[in-house]
């Protein structure tokens, strides 16, 4: 077993698959942050008609089944699909699109929740001390920095371990779109359980590190109160 473990780590394919997983999920999480932070802030702080409806859509989106997202993205990017001309199906870009759709509601919903936990009178207080609206929002983000970081990590956690969408829109092509989760499915299907177990352990280590960091952040936040 130890021998296999060593050979796996010296196996360039394992390294390649791991790096692609981190890259694809990292980019999808960053795009989700760019979308989710302003949108979640708007939903938490602004009052406009349809706000509750939008919040419930986002909350539903937080539990989107990855295979359903995979189906929708595959149909859109398929050669005969709406964006078929872009020829993105079975590319890392397709996986990034699908993972962004999965992670963005998570980041948005948790951002809104993080800001709604702050005392609503704090906004009045900051404005009453001469903050412009952008300065007020920056101060609120700073106040909610720990739960916002948790939102980001939860977004990453939701896509790094996702398999359905990556398989459907990425196609698990060796050297191109094979990521940790799809590689595990393939090895299992081939009966290469040891290899699958080690890839699984690698994925588990990554998700453990994320959750460990999340817990540490939350504990630090709790201690400060």
């Amino acid at each position: 077993m130890m021998e296999l473990f060593n050979s796996l780590f010296s196996d360039p394919e394992v390294l390649e698959v791991t790096l692609l997983s981190l890259k694809v999920s990292g980019i999808a999480t960053l795009i989700s942050l760019v979308i989710g932070l302003p949108l979640g802030t708007l939903l938490a702080l602004a009052k406009f008609p349809g706000r509750s409806f939008m919040l419930s859509i986002i909350n539903t989106g937080m539990a989107l089944p990855p295979v359903v997202v995979g189906l929708a993205v595959a149909m859109t990017l398929w050669r005969s699909g709406l964006l078929g001309d872009l020829r993105l199906i079975y590319t890392p870009a397709a996986i990034i699109i699908a993972q962004t759709i999965i992670a963005a509601p998570v980041v948005t919903g948790l951002t809104a929740a993080a800001l709604q936990q702050l005392d609503p009178r704090l906004q009045l207080q900051l404005l009453g001390l001469g903050a412009s609206t952008p300065q007020m929002v920056l101060t609120l983000w700073r106040e909610a920095r720990l739960p916002l970081l948790a939102a980001l990590m939860a977004g990453f956690g939701s896509v790094i371990s996702e398999v359905g969408a990556s398989m459907m829109v990425g196609g698990n092509i060796k050297g191109q779109t094979r990521v940790l989760t799809t590689a595990i499915v393939l090895e299992t299907n081939k009966g290469e359980f040891e290899r699958a177990i080690i890839l699984g352990a690698l994925l588990l280590t990554i998700t453990f590190l994320i959750n460990y960091a999340l817990t540490w952040i939350q504990q630090r936040g709790a201690k400060q109160r």
């Binding site: 009045l124 207080q125 001390l129 001469g130 903050a131 106040e143």
Partner: peptide, 28 residues
């Protein structure tokens, strides 16, 4: 609003040092 100052019933201090809390309006 930059000519006035508002003090509410609750101090609503920021998660920062006392110095930074007092400095916030000047930083704005």
């Amino acid at each position: 609003r930059r000519r006035i100052a508002l003090v509410l019933q609750e101090p609503l201090l920021l998660d920062a040092s006392v110095f930074e809390n007092i400095a916030i309006g000047l930083r704005y």
